[in-house]
Amino acid sequence: AKIIHEELATALGPNTPSYQTVARWAKRFREGSEDVNDDFRSGRPVSVLTDENIELVRQVINNDPYSIYDDIIAETSLCRGTIEQIIHNYLKMKKVTSRWIPRQLNDEQKQERVRLCRENLAKFRDGFWRLCNIITDDETWIYHRQIHHKSTNKTWIGEGASPRTIVRRSKFEPKNLFSMFFKSNGPVLIHAVDNNETIDHDYYIENCLKPVVKEIWKQRKSNGTKDIKLLHDNSSPHRHPHVINYLTEEGINIMPHPPYSPDLAPCDYWLNDYIKQNLTDQPDKKSLARAISKLIKNIPEEEFKKTFDKLLERLELCINNHGDYFEHLIK
Rank of each mutant, 00 (worst) to 15 (best):
A1Q: 14
T16W: 02
A26S: 11
A26L: 12
R28N: 13
E31K: 15
S33P: 04
F40M: 08
G43M: 06
R44T: 10
L49Q: 12
N53R: 05
V57N: 00
V57H: 05
N63D: 15
Y66N: 15
I73V: 15
T76D: 00
S77T: 04
G81S: 12
I86R: 03
V96A: 14
R99N: 13
P102N: 06
R103V: 09
L105G: 07
Q109P: 09
V114G: 07
C117N: 03
L121I: 01
D126R: 07
F128E: 15
F128H: 13
Q146L: 03
I147D: 14
G160P: 03
E173V: 07
P174C: 05
F178H: 01
S184P: 07
P187K: 03
L189Q: 00
V193L: 03
N195I: 08
I199T: 12
E206V: 07
P211L: 02
K214N: 07
Q219C: 05
K226E: 08
H232N: 14
H240R: 10
P241T: 03
I244C: 11
I244D: 08
L264V: 01
S287T: 14
S287L: 15
L288N: 02
I292L: 06
N298A: 02
K310L: 10
E313Y: 04
E316Q: 06
E316S: 10
C318D: 01
